[in-house]
């Protein structure tokens, strides 16, 4: 339960943890751009090295990072298979196998070297993308810091009447109450279990019905909590974002700026590397 409660945030004391969350949002956008720019083996090698450096810098146990990728293994396999079989190139690796399909046609399998390269690159790309963004965002930034950062980054949108502050406040409150509600669910479930509730046996309808004694009290208390919170906020004269100051003022430090500049340089570097056509270049 606890792992759900805190999302993926992993408390540690590292350079990346201490960074300004706004810088981290910008960095992860740059990182995404960078991974999509990669076209040849050398640039992919550099990107993979960069992603590994990030993992080491963040001081997050490697097995945790790998575990976060596990749900995507199916997608990885699927994309690589499609790339292997569907890419047409010049260097044929297999004799042309023809497999008769049940509805009369034949399917000729041809695997080209380009297909293998593409598959490898696609896997690497998804891998790097995931590691990079999760290190910058979910592993080292608390959801609350994240909404703070997004609120400030999107604040220019206020000019076109988008209620950035309100959206951020709602998100913050929603995030803040996820652990509370989960805890409450667990408590009520235990209370009903103590009265002999059976949540696991029977068919779908019976099990859904068995959840009613949990859902009703949960809804009631969620509404009560909402009313109480609204009253508490009004008591403190909350009236939206106008003129509000912050307890924790985000400060962009020199090191943050440096990190962003470094990554921009990296993006430019990758961009030119692609033009050199080293080893193999993806189309």
């Amino acid at each position: 339960m606890k792992s759900v409660v805190f999302g993926q945030y992993y408390p540690a004391d590292s350079f990346i943890h201490r960074m300004d969350p706004r810088a981290k949002v910008i960095l992860s956008v740059l990182f995404i751009v960078c991974t999509f720019l990669c076209r040849n083996a050398v640039s992919f090698f550099l990107m993979t090295a960069a992603a590994l450096c990030l993992v080491l810098l963040s001081r997050i146990p490697v097995h945790l990072v790998l575990r976060s990728i596990r749900p995507l293994i199916l997608i990885l396999i699927f994309t690589s298979l499609i790339n292997v079989f569907m890419t047409k190139g010049e260097m044929l690796l297999t004799p042309s196998w023809n497999i008769p399909l049940p509805w009369g046609k034949t399917w000729s399998i041809r695997i080209y070297a380009e297909g293998l390269w593409n598959a490898a690159f696609m896997i690497l790309r998804i891998f790097i993308l995931l590691i990079g963004t999760s290190i910058f965002l979910s592993f080292t930034t608390t959801p609350i810091a994240m909404t703070d950062a997004l609120e400030q980054l999107f604040s220019p949108l206020k000019k076109i009447k988008i209620p950035v502050h309100d959206i951020a406040m709602m998100t913050t409150i929603a995030l803040r109450f996820i652990p509370t509600l989960l805890e409450e669910t667990e408590k009520i479930m235990n209370a009903q279990k103590a009265r002999g509730a059976d949540f696991i046996s029977g068919g779908l309808i019976k099990r859904a019905k068995a959840l009613l004694p949990v859902l009703i009290p949960l809804l009631i208390s969620a509404f009560n909590r909402a009313y109480e919170l609204a009253t508490a906020m009004e008591c403190r004269c909350y009236n939206g974002g106008e003129g509000r100051t912050r307890l924790k003022v985000l400060q962009l430090r020199f090191s943050d700026v440096l990190a962003i500049l470094f990554l921009i340089a990296f993006v430019v570097g990758i961009f030119f590397l692609n033009r050199l056509g080293l080893i193999y270049t993806m189309k």
Binding site: E184, I188, A191, Q192, A194, G196
Partner: peptide, 26 residues
């Protein structure tokens, strides 16, 4: 299922009233 059945039997033998139990009414 047998273990779940035993757990439920145990709940009937040892009745637990949790903290603030009024929140379990439905």
């Amino acid at each position: 299922q047998e273990i779940e059945r035993r757990r439920r039997q145990l709940c009937f033998r040892v009745g637990l009233v949790m903290q603030y139990p009024e929140y379990q009414l439905f």
